[in-house]
Design a protein around this nucleic acid. Structure first.
Length: 726
RNA sequence: GGCGGGGUAGCUCAGCUGGUCAGAGCGUGGGAUUCAUAACCCCAAGGUCGGGAGUUCAAGUCUCCCCCCCGCUACCA
């Protein structure tokens, strides 16, 4: 039997359920149900990533143990998943994976050992011990590179995380590294050989250019003394496994890879049966899944996933990412209170052009529910079944029109056979399947709704209520209603993965036996509805929502919540509501020079608050004196290897040692001609590494013309080296 | 700076390899109808297809230049 394994990311267990969780899980659930209908044996994984500093901190804040904390969050997530029919009980996920499972520890350890025992494609050891030092953001669970932080507010203070606007922690420790840098070529070959490995294509391009730019080794451990809530590094109890390395492995440990315990639970062959799988994820965690993860698997000699499929994010109406602090995120409890589960599921799959970002608010959902579901699908079910009750006492009429009555039917504008309708149904079905297989769920649903419109029109044109007044047209009337009802049968099957409960309700209202989940949409054929069978009772599937009333209720709730939050809780520490758990980036690795302590970020690192272009703004003299400009003299100048733009200078600025300064002017200046030249340099700029060399300052140059050609600033009179400019 | 994705009706977006491609849905206005959840059906916007130039018998659809938005990335220090 064909198998299909699909995963969502495992969500980081430090925050309560939100749209991002719901969305990816709905997509996974949809795919699982769909593939199951298509005859695959399926396995659907979702779950939580439960280790790391961030969990430790969140639990401490909440006054719980980490374990109690993650249990609590898991409980909330499961409740939400249950409410949306995503859990096992409702036919959804097969496992709610937790990285705190003992079998995961076992599998992850095995994986580490396996990787450590093997070499990289370039013949070096996969895992080596190094030393890591840097600024660490706990909520992000990641080290920040200099470009990724906000300068300290006060002198000497720690820089801030741009995402959380919290001070970063200085972390310096021995660490194991994964030699990711040796995998760039293999990965590029992979993307080349398997164009569908990363989807959609725009994301694939991104990943390729990222890898082309070269990869750095990644730190994959922390000292146990700094992060104890984690999996111990095998054979080195002083260290714990870094969260990303740990988390990604869940996709295979869940299937029993590397764990005798798990295999005993689920059977010896679960992994062989279902791996490789398809990974669904938000584009914010694409790198980890498209770069790190395959490299890890290669390192351990495990088969690569089938595909890494990235979707977009949900934005508010102004295009900002939904976030708790901004108050622009949709609240799941509110959603649940005012909208039907299947309406939300439908909305999520229909509204977002898969792969792209999408704007949402409650009103958009409400309108989709009313127009597509209440007026569209629901109404078609309702009008069809009502007429069958009314005109045929609730018994499915005959599909055919006898020879003798065909002219009559024709006169009423009804084709004597259903050929035309059944053909377009098949066409729609084929498109639906094609689009789903291409991850274009919104297109699939669009196609289905085109069919609904078609049948609505067919009914309006045939005017059953007029046919009903003419006893001669009884067969025509029956045929019209049969066609509509049979279309609904097809739709119930096709839409089952989207809206399981509603599809079943339609099935039941049509008086059908069995369950739409057991029908393969690819094998639907015209005429499955049996004439003479009784249809069920008619009940509105998607009651129309009173927009004015509901919207005002929702607004009231939002206002109340804001008030409550303002009173009870301190400002939330998490500002970003990432679509997924492990939202952080893999930490950067040590650079060639090794363990340079990170310097306080320099001014100007961000452009936030920059004045509008062309508008003069004043700075105070205090601002100016912060900039230490000095005269300097070029002692040596040379091109930086493998760099088009950079020159490396040593400059005498009147200090005991000359400074090394890099400047991006190689395209316009010959290094030899610069030796001995007097320059103006910024002496108190935060040092920064470029191409492996630390630049301890900045050379001033005019930027001329549109291309920004640099022209070095200099003096027309002699000045001593080190003279301050003010 | 580089790479990628976009800029098409009020809104959300379709429009592949150039010639009914100037469209759909929603919203709005009008009409018709009553089986249905005031639902369904019909008609209506005259939108410079971001701007400009070019190729062509013919260009949202190809080429070049420019502007704007978004994403990724960088040797912008």
């Amino acid at each position: 039997m064909k198998t299909f394994y699909v995963t969502t990311p495992i969500y980081y267990a430090n925050s309560l359920p939100h749209m991002g969780h719901l969305y990816t899980t709905v997509v996974g659930d949809f795919l699982k149900r769909y593939k199951r209908q298509r005859g695959y044996e399926t396995y659907f994984l979702t779950g939580t990533d439960e280790h790391g500093t961030n969990i430790e901190r969140a639990s401490a804040r909440a006054g719980r143990t980490p374990r109690a904390h993650v249990d609590y969050v898991v409980g909330e997530l499961k409740k939400m998943f249950g409410a949306y029919a995503l859990d096992s009980e409702h036919g959804g996920y097969d496992i709610f994976m937790r990285t705190t499972e003992p079998f995961h520890y076992e599998g992850a350890s095995e994986f580490w050992r396996r990787a450590a025992a093997r070499t990289t494609p370039k013949g070096r050891e996969n895992i080596y011990k190094g030393f890591y030092e840097g600024w660490f953001c706990a909520p992000c669970a990641t080290f920040k590179t200099e470009a990724e932080m906000i300068p300290a507010a006060e002198e000497g203070g720690p820089p801030l995380c741009p995402i959380h606007e919290r001070p970063l922690d200085k972390v310096s420790e021995e660490s194991y590294f994964f030699r990711l840098s040796d995998y760039d070529e293999v990965l590029l070959e992979l993307y080349e050989a398997r164009p569908d490995f990363v989807r959609p294509e725009a994301r694939r391009n991104e990943v390729i250019s990222l890898v082309r730019g070269g990869l750095e080794d990644v730190s994959i451990s922390r000292l146990k003394s700094s992060v104890s809530w984690a999996i111990p590094v095998p054979d080195d109890p002083q260290h714990t496994v870094y969260i990303w390395f740990d988390a990604l492995l869940n996709y295979i440990t869940a299937l029993g890879w590397g764990s005798a315990e798990r295999r005993a639970q689920v059977g010896e062959d679960l992994f062989e049966k279902f791996w490789p799988g398809v990974h669904l994820l938000g584009k914010d965690i694409l790198r980890q899944h498209a770069v790190l993860w395959p490299a890890m698997l290669l390192a351990a000699g495990v088969e690569l996933p089938r595909a890494v499929v990235a979707h977009g994010l949900w934005l508010d109406q102004t295009g900002r990412k939904g976030s708790k602090t901004l108050g622009n995120a949709l609240e799941l409890p509110t959603l649940l209170r005012h909208f039907q589960v299947d309406a939300v599921r439908y909305f999520l799959l229909r509204e977002m052009s898969f792969g792209q970002d999408c704007k949402v608010d409650y009103e958009v959902i409400l309108e989709r529910s009313n127009s597509d579901l209440a007026s569209g699908f629901g109404n078609l079910v309702s009008r069809t079944l009502t007429m069958i009750h009314k005109y045929f006492d609730g018994v499915v009429p005959l599909p055919d029109i006898n020879e003798g009555r065909r002219l009559l039917a024709k006169r009423a504008g009804v084709d004597s056979d259903a050929q035309e309708l059944s053909t377009s149904l098949e066409l729609m079905r084929d498109q639906f399947l094609l689009h789903v297989d291409d991850y274009a769920f919104h297109r699939a649903l669009e196609a289905a709704w085109g069919m609904i419109a078609r049948v609505d029109k067919f009914i309006s044109d045939a005017k059953p209520w007029e046919l009903a007044r003419d006893e001669e047209q009884r067969e025509t009337l029956g045929a019209v209603l049969y066609r509509s009802a049979e279309t609904l049968r097809w739709l119930a099957v096709l839409l089952y993965p989207v809206m399981p409960e509603s599809a079943r309700a339609v099935w039941k209202q049509l008086g059908l036996e069995g369950d739409p989940q057991d029908f393969d949409p690819a094998r639907l054929s015209w005429g499955g509805l049996r004439a003479g069978e009784r249809v069920g009772e008619v009940a509105p599937l998607f009651p129309r929502i009173d927009k004015a009333k509901t919207m005002s209720e929702i607004e009231k709730e939002i206002a109340q919540r804001k008030e409550a939050e303002a009173q009870t809780s301190p400002p939330p520490s998490t500002t970003q509501e990432g679509a997924h758990a492990t939202q952080a980036a893999v930490p950067g690795a040590p650079t060639a020079a090794g363990t340079q302590p990170a310097q306080p970020p320099q001014t100007g690192a961000t452009e936030a608050g920059a004045p509008p272009e062309g508008v003069a703004t004043y700075i105070s003299i205090e601002d100016f004196v912060k900039v230490e400009l000095r005269a300097g003299q070029v002692l040596t100048a040379e091109r930086v290897p493998k760099s088009d733009k950079l020159l490396r200078f040593t400059v005498d600025v009147g200090e005991p040692e000359p400074r090394q300064i890099l400047a991006g002017i190689a395209e316009h200046y010959e290094p030899e001609k610069l030796v001995g030249r007097k320059l103006v340099i910024v002496a108190n700029l935060k040092p920064r590494k470029l191409r492996g060399f630390e630049s301890q300052g900045m050379v001033l140059a005019a930027s001329v013309g549109e291309e920004g050609r640099p022209v070095l600033a200099t003096f027309t009179e002699d000045v001593p080296n080190g003279a301050r400019l003010k």
